[in-house]
């Protein structure tokens, strides 16, 4: 039993015993379920109106009821919804140590602080990646149940890349949320940071600089503003990797060196 596996067991047990995984799963599954509802409505809008699902004034701009539209909706949902839901998970994993005042139980141990932070990031990555894959699986089940046209193996492959890619890119930016929860010693600074990054991502896309801002890149990759090639270049991906590395560095550095007074 080495230090990292001990820390990983600890972090996993804390996550499993809490209600947060269940709540975040239920919250995140809203994306494919709402997508499925849109597919039902778009497939036969008149029937949806007569069933009372939508009002006569409804304006659905999602597109047509087919697999490409459904997958595109999910990819955007993972990028934008993930930026918020994954941030909530990260905020809980790091911030709860300060709000529950358990941070001191993770210090002055033979298990290093680096192992503990590494275990926290591992749990967050596995948790958020599972949510991404689960929403993809639910999307396929719902699409199959609704019976929509346009399925092909090629589409499945490209959708898998878009959805899982958008999820991974969102996960790559979570170290900044962890850093905000750590330096702010609680939940609120991390929530504030998340709202700020969602806001500046929108502004940067409107101004045409989205491809240069790490927090706009996952949404642009998902096709939220149109075909990704129009907005993203290899430099965009390099910026995302560098930002992710920097986020990890400052979080580890803070845990290693900051005075722990709480």
């Amino acid at each position: 039993m080495n230090a990292f596996s001990s820390a990983l067991y600890t972090e996993s047990l804390k996550a499993i015993r809490s209600k947060v995984p269940l709540l975040t799963t239920l919250g995140f599954l809203i994306v494919p379920l709402v997508g499925g509802l849109f597919m039902v409505i778009l497939k036969d809008p008149e029937a949806a109106k007569s069933m009372g699902l939508i009002s006569t004034k409804a304006q659905l701009a999602v597109g047509t009821a087919d697999w490409p539209t459904f997958f595109n909706f999910l990819a955007q949902g993972v990028a934008v919804g993930g930026a918020i839901m994954f941030a909530i998970i990260t905020t809980w994993v790091f911030g709860r140590e300060f709000s529950d005042r358990t941070i001191k139980e993770l210090l002055s141990l033979p298990t290093s602080r680096e192992a503990i932070v590494g275990a926290k990031f591992t749990v967050i990555s596995l948790w958020t990646l599972t949510l991404t894959l689960l929403s993809f699986a639910v999307c396929i089940l719902v699409g199959d149940a609704v019976v929509i046209p346009g399925w092909s193996v090629e589409l499945f492959h490209s959708a898998a890349i878009d959805i899982v890619g958008a999820g991974i890119m969102t996960i790559m930016l979570l170290p900044f949320v962890a850093f905000a929860a750590s330096i702010g010693r609680g939940f609120m600074p991390a929530f504030g940071w998340t709202i700020f990054t969602v806001f500046i991502a929108q502004i940067s896309v409107i101004m045409g600089w989205g491809g240069w801002l790490p927090w706009a890149i996952p949404a642009l990759f998902s096709g939220a503003a149109g075909p990704k090639a129009e907005f993203l270049s290899p430099a965009s991906y390099a910026i995302l990797f560098l930002a992710s590395g920097f986020g990890l560095f400052i979080t580890f550095y803070w845990w290693r060196n900051a005075d722990q007074t709480k």
Binding site: M1, T10, K14, R17, P110, T111
Partner: peptide, 12 residues
């Protein structure tokens, strides 16, 4: 018991 078990593991 779980609280103490994670302490046991973190103390190696």
């Amino acid at each position: 018991k779980e609280n103490l078990d994670i302490a046991r593991r973190l103390y190696g």
